[in-house]
Every structure is written in C-alpha cells, then in structure tokens.
Design a protein around this nucleic acid. Structure first.
Lengths: 182, 182
DNA sequence: GCATTCATGTAAGCTGTTACATGATTCA
DNA sequence: TGAATCATGTAACAGCTTACATGAATGC
C-alpha cells in the first residue's frame, strides 16, 4: 500500500498532474517503485475522496486540459506519519522468479540455463548503467525544487540500488562458473 | 505467474497435500517465494482443471481427510518448458517500501529514521543467520548422506539470498553513518 | 485446560497489468 | 508523413492478502 504514499511524497515536492506522476514512476523512481497510468489515476481518485489531495483544473489551448493535484494538510499529516513508521512487514518480500528457476535448475537443460544466466547478468549490467543516468535526472529535479536536504536521501536510495545490482552481477558470474564446472 | 510453477516444481519432488505445500511456501522456500493457503488451494483447483496435476483422496482417522496431489506428464512438460524459458520481464521489479521511505527521508524525523534503519539492519542480520544455518545443514547433508543433483542449485539460491542480505546490511550501516553525520 | 497442528476451503477486497479509446500538437 | 508527446481515463482480468469457518487430535 505504498503507491499512495509515493504519490503523496512526490506531491509534497510540488503540485503536478497524473501524467507527471506517471513519468516519475516510470522514469526517475522506477528502480524502487513503478506504476502504470491506469493505477495512478485510480489512486488519485481515492486520495481525493479521502481529502489527502486537492485538484485544480487547468485549461490549456495547445495541449489537452489537465488537473494539477496538490497535497493537503491532511495529506501531509498522513505522509509524515507513514514516513516515520516502521514495521518488519515492510521488508521486501522477495518474490523472485530467477531464484525459483535456479532452485529448480536440476530440471533444466544445462546449456540453456547458463545462457539464461548470461542474459540475466547482461540485463542487470544495463540497469546498472541506467541507474547512473537516473542519478542525473534526480539532480535535475532537485534543481527545480531547489531543496538540498533531499539529495542525501536520493543518493542513499541510488547506492542501495547499485549495491543490490552489484551483488546480483557477482552472484550470476559465480553461478555460471559453478554450473559449468558441474 | 509463478506460484503455479512453484507448486509444479515441489510436486515434481514428491506428491503432497495443499497443507504440505503451504508449509514449504512459508518455511523452506519463503526466502524467494511465499504464498497463503487460500491462494495455494485456489491454484491447485486451476492446475487440476488444466490437468497439470491429479488428486488422490486419502481418508484418515485421527487427522482430517486430505488430498494428495501429484504432477502429471502434462504438468511435467509445462514445468520443464517454464524452467528453460527466460524473459527479461521475469527480472524482479523491485517494489521496495524501505527504499521509498529513505527516498522521502527528508520528511522524516532524523532520530526515528536512524532507529528504523537499525531495526531494519538487525532484522536482516537475523534472516542472514538463519539462512546461513540452512546452508551449513545443506553442506553436512551433502557430505554425509548423498550428493543429489539438486544440492548445487539449492546452494546457489541460498548464496544469492545471502549476497543480497550482505548488500543490504552494508548499505544500512553506511546509511546510518551518513544520516548521523548530516 | 489451552494452544497448536492438521486440513480444507469461501468471501471480500486490494493491488497491479494489459488493452483500449480519444485527439490535438510537435518534432524528425 | 508518421511517430512521439501531452493528458485523461475505462474495462477486464490476474494475483495476492486478510478474515473467517470447521473440528478433531495432540502437545505443553
């Protein structure tokens, strides 16, 4: 249940449209949370009903009309409550298909499996590169918002992502070697 | 869509009841996949309808009657197809609440946040210890009893889990330091 | 005596995905 | 000229969670 808080968090930086939120969820912050447009618009409705956000209709001439959402005081309260709260249930439930396939690897063809692990490793390597790009995008956002307090936390999330990716890359390398030897 | 294949995989080891499957998903293999009973029973119905598994009713006297599910040839075919297949879509979409909370950490109380990170780190450390224990047991089992083809793959999944956990522990340590300094 | 284990499920609700619809504007 | 961008959504479906129901047997 954190798409809700992700939206509140982004709106706490500045008011924006559903379309803008969509872009953030699929570009800047997609390495820890992603969401489709349909889901975001549905959630925005709910947040409005709960009075956590309010809407301002903007008529445009050369672009479709839009709705700019802002966080309310009530919304800020809920957001701050959430960000300070911690429960062990929040720790990532790893539902990991790759791990499952390795677990059942004895039923797979050895060469195919090795090939798949190579593909896996390559794609993590690409993600690793693009996360460095995200770092730059976030700094652009930082310039717009002009708030330097955030940058420490943004860097921490990126380094968490990079660390996980490095762990996966190292593991894939080792796994390929061990399956080959076997 | 891999609860289905997880069930088929476990049934490929040996026939068992929904209740047994439930225990596997919430104990042995829960570090890469978990599932509630309600979900498992629903999935078992579907797998039966698709003729991937078949059922054998067992009448018991001192325990409730049960259904023992076995994988069919058709089910084995589907399982082997799946285990050899690889698509980039299978790579874990990290939806990580902890990362999101750190991302928005500027809105949190510094001391509470540090405290929450300490709790996070401790709980990963505990998970790490219990997974290490599983690994040691596996090695003893390998040395003393036999060397099944499966043990390499089980070992690989465990080491993947341990690597991720180490990455998270290191990150948490660094993050606590950096937030304290700030 | 009270909690846990065994064993199977139903019902309702929440979260997330995929496909589709609209239609003008801007860029290559 | 055709693709991408802006901007909002609806509908249907798939997957997962939570709460509940039953009831005997066993363990502490």
């Amino acid at each position: 249940m954190s798409l809700k808080h992700g939206i509140l968090g982004l709106l706490s930086y500045s008011p924006m449209s559903g379309y803008d939120l969509m872009k953030y969820f699929n570009e800047s912050i997609n390495f820890f949370w992603s969401a489709q447009g349909s889901q975001i618009y549905r959630e925005l409705d709910k947040l409005q009903r709960d009075e956590f956000i309010e809407v301002n209709r903007v008529i445009q001439e050369k672009r479709p009309n839009k709705k700019i959402f802002s966080i309310t005081e009530r919304g800020k309260g809920e957001f701050v409550r959430w960000v300070n709260e911690f429960s062990l249930k929040e720790i990532n439930k790893t539902r990991d298909i790759i791990t499952m396939k390795i677990f059942f690897g004895a039923s797979a063809d050895k060469e195919i499996l090795i090939n798949n692990l190579i593909k896996f490793k390559k794609s993590i390597e690409e993600e690793y590169k693009s996360l460095s790009q995200v770092k730059e995008n976030l700094h652009k956002f930082q310039r717009n918002v002009d708030n330097k307090k955030e940058s420490l936390f943004w860097d921490l999330t990126i380094s968490k992502g990079l660390k996980s990716m490095r762990a996966n890359m190292e593991w894939a390398e080792e796994a390929i070697g061990m399956i080959r030897e076997y």
